[in-house]
């Protein structure tokens, strides 16, 4: 009897050791199609603001990290079922998402969302047709604004829709639209901006509090010593902290 008890105790301890040693490799899930936040560079690797940020966070939290790309539409289901351990994909913190997953503290200020339209077009933002990427805060915003929403799976397609005239304008993060407007003479930013969302944070599973605390501490240390502000300025993503 005693040996059985001891045996179970030993098993329980080894199990808890295994649990503490979890996340020897942290898999970072991102979309890879949303510059400057994250994109695939010419060499075929994940690059961008979040790549640099994520690598720095992992170094500070002493974690080994690996980058994985996943399409935006199924990025939350795949986190929840354990295919990777974090979402670091320019995902704004919202109440709806917070019910399904947990977020670290935000690493960008609430980024203003802007409209991009064809140069010279007279856009009716209240009653017109506005494009947005599906499952984003911008899509939810348009759906409740009274304008007609057309959704696309990738951010790139939303721009193509404006060009083809399928949509009057596109609503997306200011940092994403600005370089596009600068390089294309036929596209302009509208003056009106919308302040939606609670800033961008990293998504983790609700059961993964240990990992969330590690990243929270790392983000805080980057905020404290100003490195986060430097990164935000380098990639031209909104105001610093």
């Amino acid at each position: 009897m005693k040996s059985i008890l001891l045996g179970t105790a030993a098993l329980a301890i080894s199990a808890s050791v295994a649990f503490a040693g979890s996340h020897s490799v942290v898999r970072m899930g991102t979309e890879g199609a949303y510059p400057p936040y994250n994109f695939i560079n010419d060499a075929g690797e994940v690059d961008g603001f979040e790549r640099e940020l994520g690598d720095e966070l992992c170094a500070r939290a002493e974690l080994t990290c690996e980058w994985v790309t996943n399409e935006w539409d199924s990025i939350i289901p795949n986190l929840v079922s354990g295919n990777y351990d974090t979402i670091i994909a320019g995902m704004s913190i919202t109440d709806e998402r917070d019910e399904v997953i947990d977020f670290t503290q935000n690493y960008t200020q609430p980024d203003p969302s802007s409209y991009l339209a064809l140069d010279g077009a007279d856009v009716d933002l209240e009653g017109g047709v506005i494009a947005a990427q599906a499952n984003t805060i911008q899509a939810a915003f348009i759906a409740s604004s009274g304008a007609t929403l057309v959704e696309f799976a990738t951010p790139d397609e939303t721009i193509a829709a404006v060009r083809s005239g399928e949509a009057d304008a596109v609503l997306a993060d200011d940092a994403y639209l600005r370089p596009i407007a600068e390089e294309n003479a036929d596209l302009v930013m509208l003056e009106k901006q919308e302040l939606i969302g609670g800033g961008v944070g990293m998504g983790v599973r609700e059961s993964d509090t240990e990992l969330k605390e590690k990243f929270n501490a790392a983000i805080q240390s980057m905020k404290d010593d100003g490195t986060l502000n430097a990164l935000l300025a380098k990639w031209e993503i909104g105001p610093g902290f």
């Binding site: 179970t8 098993l11 329980a12 199990a15 295994a18 649990f19 040693g21 979890s22 996340h23 020897s24 490799v25 898999r27 080994t64 690996e66 994985v68 929840v80 079922s81 354990g82 295919n83 351990d85 399904v100 997953i101 599973r205 609700e206 059961s207 993964d208």
Partner: peptide, 30 residues
């Protein structure tokens, strides 16, 4: 001897050594 639920809210959680492929496996294995 794992006692926690496999389904924790929305999360599907199994013990680490049961993950397929293992969480620390290189990307090509995944």
């Amino acid at each position: 001897d794992w006692e926690a639920d496999i389904w924790q809210g929305n999360d599907f959680v199994v013990c680490d050594i049961a993950k397929l492929p293992l969480g620390n496996a290189p990307q090509w294995v995944h």
